[in-house]
């Protein structure tokens, strides 16, 4: 069984919600990423989204785009990222071994690497799913089939601009969980969410068995508290990645600890069973 399915089955049985922090692989270096992943698990993360740096990420706001640029300037390669994850999985035990890893990766990279080879390499590295933010459902048919064969989940996105019929079409070919984008726009911290967000997620929930997780803009423990009753999980990206910007003035352990503390605060906002 895929770790993502196990996670949501487990959370559902306990009436709990998932917290999914996003970290850029290789910012400021892979050793930090390798230290962050277990730290975030110990601090309450249920699943880790690993961002594969890309040179032209049009769905990303300035914080994640700059983080990708920093990692790429240091010459990060996909093979190094997979090697780091593979080592991490080989050495992990307990909660870290059970926590799903999902790569957020541009189709440019998947295509260049070769779709089948990407899936095989990701699975061998202990990855459980992938999000390809620039691959809409029309172009995803082949990847859906191949990912299933590789026992990887293909998590697809539904946005506020997605018409209802299309949202259902996306849900039908999505596995693992459905990624609901809170606002029409790029990734980045936001103060408020559209008033119709809860109703839109509720509409989908009545029509799909998939867990629904909300991302884009979720950046504080208050947001997590506000949105956790609505969703099965919450994805936090830019608010975490922004904390990597100060990497040159802090030691690795300080940085990892600081981000760990922030994730613990976020986890405190989850709507846990009383």
């Amino acid at each position: 069984m895929n770790r993502i399915d196990t996670l949501f089955a487990h959370l559902k049985s306990e009436g709990r919600k998932a917290l999914m922090p996003f970290v850029t692989a290789g910012d400021p270096d892979l050793a930090t990423t390798a230290a962050l992943i277990p730290e975030l698990v110990h601090r309450g993360a249920s699943l880790i989204e690993v961002g594969i740096p890309y040179s032209d990420p049009i769905a990303d706001g300035p914080v994640i785009a700059a983080s990708y640029a920093r990692a790429l300037r240091k010459g990060i390669k996909l093979s190094q990222i997979f090697a780091m994850l593979k080592t991490l999985r080989a050495e992990a035990s307990g909660a870290v071994a059970l926590t799903p890893l999902v790569t957020m990766v541009s189709y440019s990279i998947v295509h260049r690497h070769g779709v089948e080879r990407y899936l095989v390499d990701a699975a061998e590295a202990g990855v459980d799913g992938l999000i390809v933010p620039d691959l809409p459902v029309e172009e995803a048919a082949g990847l859906v089939k191949l990912a299933t064969v590789a026992n990887l989940k293909l998590i697809q996105l539904v946005t506020p601009t997605t018409p209802p019929e299309r949202a259902l079409q996306i849900a039908r070919t999505t596995t693992g969980f459905l990624y609901y984008v809170s606002v029409a726009g790029i990734t980045g911290e936001r103060k408020a969410f559209p008033p119709e967000l809860a109703a839109n997620v509720a509409w989908l929930r009545e029509r799909t068995e998939l867990p629904i997780c909300i991302g884009f803009g979720v950046s504080t423990p208050e947001h997590v508290k506000l949105l956790s009753p609505v969703a099965d999980g919450l994805i936090v990206g830019s608010a975490i990645v922004r904390r990597l910007e100060s990497s040159d003035t802090k030691s690795r352990s300080e940085l990892v600890n600081e981000i760990g503390t922030f994730v613990e605060e976020l986890a405190g906002g989850l709507n846990q069973r009383s």
Binding site: P136, Q156, T161, I170
Partner: peptide, 12 residues
């Protein structure tokens, strides 16, 4: 050709 863009742009 095709459309390799985020879902947010597909409706537009």
């Amino acid at each position: 050709g095709g459309r390799f863009v985020p879902e947010t742009l597909m409706d537009a």
